[in-house]
């Protein structure tokens, strides 16, 4: 394990600490009595008093934060009022589908974006470049929630090719591996809705990076050495572009996770994003808190992976 990896792992701690602080802090923005907000207007006075003591509302906030954090570290994210279950159980149950959707969307978006960006850079200022540039602009401008609806309308309602909602057919009792084709079938439309948007951002930045790389001195010198253009592109240029793009792809994971909130809502995908929207509607604050915390932590880890990948491609990168 190199010094870079160690340093980068150590840097996780302050970031995760900061994230927990923000999540805790945001929830203290709740106007009025948090216990009342959490339990709702029909809570009994005894239960309210109990929760107030549990949250340490009578104490100063650093103490309250300490109580909350030690609970989080023990895996105790509180109890969901609306679902009457421990928050952690619900969140972990919903994390899988979200990871599947976000992961496949990020993968597809990355492939589309890289291919489109490289193609545009290679055909710079030609028709292909202009078409890609415009397509990519559409990608970053399109509301993903609208794209999802249009895809449903076209492919599910009009053409009837693909399912419009859920992760499996309602009548399906398949489990384990046999459920894979079913899930994959349901995954297509939501993945597309997210991937086209993510691919837009990645494609746009790839194009810029590739144009810079293709005009850079090392590429020019490779040409001066008579290295075949195909080799220059596939070995040298692609590696440079990838090294520049990995952090961007990592950041894009954040947009995919955020976009999943809309897409899961539209496609009735049983993931964390939809859970969050439902929890907000139900004023289930602890559930929102837990969901946000877990998704943020997952995002931090994705970015760790992206940074490590970048370091593997370009050994000059240093941990900030």
């Amino acid at each position: 394990m190199s010094a870079y990896v160690l340093k980068r792992l150590l840097l996780l701690l302050p970031v995760l600490f900061g994230v927990s602080l923000v999540v805790f802090g945001v929830m203290s923005l709740v106007p009025g009595d948090p216990a009342l907000a959490i339990l709702g207007p029909y809570a009994t006075p005894e239960r309210l008093a109990e929760l107030r003591a549990e949250l340490g509302l009578d104490r100063r906030w650093p103490v309250r934060y300490g109580i909350w954090l030690s609970g989080v570290l023990d895996g105790d994210l509180g109890r969901s009022v609306s679902l009457e279950r421990p928050v952690l159980d619900v969140v972990l149950e919903r994390l899988g589908p979200t990871a599947l959707l976000a992961g496949s969307a990020l993968l597809l978006g990355t492939l589309l974006g890289l291919a489109a960006g490289m193609l545009a850079a290679l055909r710079h200022n030609q028709m292909t470049d202009r078409l890609v540039t415009f397509g990519v602009l559409l990608g970053i401008s399109i509301p993903s929630f609208w794209l999802g609806l249009v895809l449903i309308l076209v492919f599910a309602v009009w053409l009837g090719w693909l399912p419009a909602s859920g992760m499996t057919w309602v009548w399906s009792d398949a489990s384990g591996l046999s459920a894979v084709p079913d899930i994959a079938w349901h995954l297509i439309l939501p993945t597309l809705s997210l991937a086209l948007v993510a691919g837009g951002v990645i494609g746009r930045l790839t194009r810029g990076a590739a144009i810079d790389v293709l005009a850079s001195a090392p590429i020019r010198m490779a040409r001066a050495r008579g290295i075949p253009e195909r080799r220059i592109l596939l070995v040298q240029a692609l590696k440079s572009v990838l090294a520049r793009m990995t952090p961007v792809i990592g950041l894009q994971a954040g947009f995919v996770i955020g976009g999943a909130v809309y897409i899961e809502t539209i496609f009735q995908w049983p993931g964390l994003g939809r859970l969050l929207v439902e929890a907000i509607a139900a004023r289930d604050l602890l559930l929102v808190q837990g969901g946000v915390l877990v998704l943020a932590a997952a995002y931090v880890l994705v970015n760790l992976v992206a940074d490590l990948a970048q370091h593997a491609l370009d050994r000059r990168t240093r941990a900030a």
């Binding site: 923000v22 203290s28 994971a253 996770i257 969050l276 907000i280 943020a296 995002y299 931090v300």
Partner: peptide, 25 residues
């Protein structure tokens, strides 16, 4: 800037969602 870094550690829409959840729609 450390504070800003922490805000950036959130997936984009999630922070906004958390704030709306706390303040109310």
């Amino acid at each position: 800037m450390r504070g800003v870094d922490v805000l950036m550690a959130f997936p984009y829409l999630l922070l906004a969602l958390a704030i709306v959840a706390a303040l109310g729609p």
